[in-house]
């Protein structure tokens, strides 16, 4: 549920309409983008606009369903895999990856148990770390 932010821009050389008009235009766009985007999203929040956009997507989804159904037979006649066939292949590869991950996790757990058996908590640092006193006091006051 995330979208990339623009990283904090490093100071760029000043551009003016005379020295570099294209760069100056880009600077102007970047400076104003947030406001323009907000204006556009305000427009899309309007019930009528949102309904129109939603119905447009609904229509595309219905078309997608019909296309998928309509393509199945021709692809089978041409002896070509359908989307479902490719998805099924992907599923099997994914299941193999999952199985390998389960084995890896089991090995890590077994090694950990073995190390603990022979050398106590071999890889575990002591759980005794303390925060700075001021931070601890401040937290205690809030509780």
């Amino acid at each position: 549920m995330s979208t990339p932010p623009s990283p904090a821009p490093a100071p760029a050389g000043p551009a003016t309409l005379l020295s570099d008009p294209v760069k100056a235009w880009r600077d102007w766009f970047v400076r104003n983008e947030r406001e323009w985007s907000e204006a556009l999203t305000r427009l899309m929040k309007d019930d009528g606009v949102a309904r129109a956009v939603g119905q447009e997507i609904n229509t595309a989804l219905h078309a997608q369903q019909m296309l998928a159904q309509g393509m199945a037979t021709p692809l089978a006649l041409l002896n070509l895999p359908t989307r479902d066939d490719v998805v099924a292949l992907g599923e099997r590869i994914g299941q193999l990856e999952d199985a390998v991950a389960r084995i890896e996790a089991a090995l890590v757990q077994a090694l950990r148990a073995g190390a603990a058996g022979t050398a106590g908590t071999a890889h575990a640092p002591a759980r005794t770390r303390q925060p700075p006193k001021a931070a601890k006091a401040s937290a205690a006051r809030r509780r």
């Binding site: 990339p4 623009s6 821009p9 880009r26 766009f29 970047v30 985007s37 999203t41």
Partner: peptide, 20 residues
């Protein structure tokens, strides 16, 4: 859907990239 939440951000990002 994320792009709809801030429609011009991608374009702005590309311009920012060109500027730097």
């Amino acid at each position: 859907a994320f792009q709809m939440l801030r429609p011009l951000q991608k374009a702005s990002g590309r311009m920012s990239l060109l500027n730097h």
